[in-house]
């Protein structure tokens, strides 16, 4: 299923746990420093709007080519659960419609997804090379000086970026489902 930014609430609410999606449009990277900053009242840099937007938990490897243009050479997801204390508030405050990461998130984020109409999209952990191929352009970078390259906000064009809905806007989490099912299967085998 193809989705593109900006995402609207109705489309996001239709996404279900287990749906494979391909994302086209703009995503903003953000990890620990950005989440802490925004959750503690920090303002988005001028020119950045997350309304209907996507945050990608990723610290990309970005180089400047000979012509002086930024190029992403590796861009896999980083573990999302570290942002659990902040993510729910950020989704609600800035109108974020999707978060991409790996490993899934917990109850507060799931509740915020349900309340505000947002989803968690799981990318393939470790697939740095494949995912970098789906990033076609670096549009801009913010907070590069303030937070350093991996922690900066990179505004990226993506085309058919693959991910799986693992937490939807209806309160379902694939992570919870798989955990409970595997726990029950294990109990039968002990």
């Amino acid at each position: 299923m193809n989705i593109s930014t900006p995402l609207n609430e109705a489309a996001v609410r239709k996404l279900k746990v287990g749906d494979a999606v391909e994302i086209t449009g703009v995503v903003f990277t953000g990890r620990d420093a950005v989440h802490k900053y925004l959750a503690k009242g920090g303002e988005l840099p001028a020119g950045v709007s997350l309304t209907g937007g996507i945050i990608y938990h990723c610290g990309p490897v970005v180089i400047k080519d000979d012509a002086g243009n930024w190029k992403v050479t590796a861009a896999g997801p980083t573990t999302s659960i570290r942002e659990e204390p902040y993510q729910g508030d950020i989704i609600k405050k800035f109108g974020v419609r999707a978060v991409i990461g790996k490993g899934g998130m917990a109850d507060r984020t799931l509740a915020a997804c349900r309340e505000a109409g947002a989803v968690y999209l799981h990318a393939i952990g470790g697939a740095a090379q494949v995912l970098a191929e789906h990033i076609t352009k670096v549009r801009n970078v913010y907070f590069l000086e303030k937070f350093g390259s991996p922690e900066a906000i990179w505004e990226l064009d993506v085309v058919n970026f693959p991910a799986v809905v693992t937490m939807d806007a209806n309160g379902n989490s694939l992570h919870t489902e798989v955990f409970e099912r595997s726990q029950a299967e294990l109990a039968k085998r002990l």
């Binding site: 799981h122 694939l174 798989v178 099912r181």
Partner: peptide, 14 residues
């Protein structure tokens, strides 16, 4: 064998 019967799967997707 037992772990692969639990249904956790690649990336925990099942």
């Amino acid at each position: 064998n037992t772990a692969n019967e639990l249904g956790i799967g690649p990336m925990g997707f099942g």
